Computed example of a mutant assay.
Amino acid sequence: MTLPTEEQTIKTWTNGPYTISTDPTLIPLETLNKWFASDDFYWAKDLPLPALEQSLQNSLCFGLYHTADSDNDNDNSFIGIARCITDHVTFAYITDVYVHQSHQGKGLGRWLVKCIGEATEAMPHLRRSMLFTMDWGRSVPFYEKVLGMEVAECKRGEGMAMMMRKGRGYPRSMDG
């Protein structure tokens, strides 16, 4: 096992009563798993808690928290998440970007994604960041604008092929 590089150290951003931290140990597993089991996370499903914990430990996580009372550091409410599956050097796959509905419409999703952009831009040898979305109306324009991402054309025999194989953890709701 290698020691964490500078790019892998815990980072924190603050915006008024909101904080984003890359410390995966702050993320309440039970709450996140309830989100995964909800209709809001149409692209995922809940996991056994040890598997969920392992997925967070093996990812670059961005937990979003709201502090109701700024004088009480322990009064943090978990309200959002994003994960990057990454080697911290050449590749980052962005997934599970979510802000709880009670805090949507405040620019927090944009801020969360900008923090991802800042963290991945700090990787000097990054070859590519990727994500998948089926939301052409909202998500595609959002990621184009906020992260400068482009839709990869998937024409057989030309350019990059966006490919996948469905595993046992693939949510059936995605089969349409």
Rank of each mutant, 00 (worst) to 15 (best):
A51L: 12
C61S: 11
I27A: 01
N33V: 00
P24H: 04
T31Y: 10
L56K: 01
A51K: 09
D23H: 08
E53L: 09
S38H: 05
Q57S: 14
D23Q: 07
D39K: 08
F36T: 01
Q54W: 11
A37G: 13
L49N: 04
L26A: 13
C61V: 13
L49G: 07
L60F: 13
S21C: 07
S59L: 04
L60E: 02
E30K: 07
L60G: 03
I20W: 01
F36L: 15
L32H: 01
T22M: 09
G63T: 08
N58K: 13
E53C: 10
F36P: 05
P50H: 09
Q54M: 11
T25A: 15
P24I: 04
L32I: 01
D23M: 04
W35I: 10
I27W: 01
G63N: 07
Q57A: 15
P50Q: 11
L29D: 02
S21E: 04
P24A: 12
D23S: 10
D40G: 02
Y42Q: 04
Y42M: 03
Q57R: 14
P28G: 12
N58I: 08
Y42I: 06
P48L: 11
L52K: 03
K34D: 15
G63R: 01
S55M: 12
D39H: 08
L52G: 10
N33K: 02
F36W: 10
T31D: 15
Y42T: 07
K45S: 14
L32Q: 06
P48T: 08
I20R: 02
S38V: 09
F36Y: 15
D46L: 03
P48C: 08
W35P: 05
F41T: 03
F41Q: 03
L60Q: 06
S38C: 12
L47M: 14
N33E: 12
C61W: 01
A51C: 10
P50I: 07
L47I: 05
L49V: 03
I27H: 01
P48A: 14
S55Y: 05
I27F: 02
L26Y: 03
F62P: 05
N58S: 15
F41W: 15
K45D: 15
T31L: 12
T31M: 11
L49A: 05
P50L: 10
Q54L: 12
P50V: 13
L56D: 01
I20L: 11
K34E: 15
S55R: 07
A44P: 06
S21P: 01
S55A: 15
D23I: 03
L56M: 13
P24S: 13
N58G: 08
A44G: 12
A51Q: 14
N58A: 13
F62N: 00
G63W: 00
E30C: 07
S38Y: 13
P24K: 00
P48R: 08
I20P: 00
T31K: 13
D46E: 15
D46K: 02
L64K: 00
N58L: 15
I20V: 15
D39C: 04
N33F: 02
P28Q: 11
F62Y: 09
S59P: 03
L32D: 01
K45V: 10
N58P: 03
L64I: 09
Q54T: 08
L29K: 06
S55F: 08
F62D: 02
W43P: 00
L32S: 03
F36G: 01
W35T: 02
C61L: 06
S55I: 09
L26S: 12
A44Q: 06
S55G: 12
S21Y: 04
T25N: 14
D39T: 11
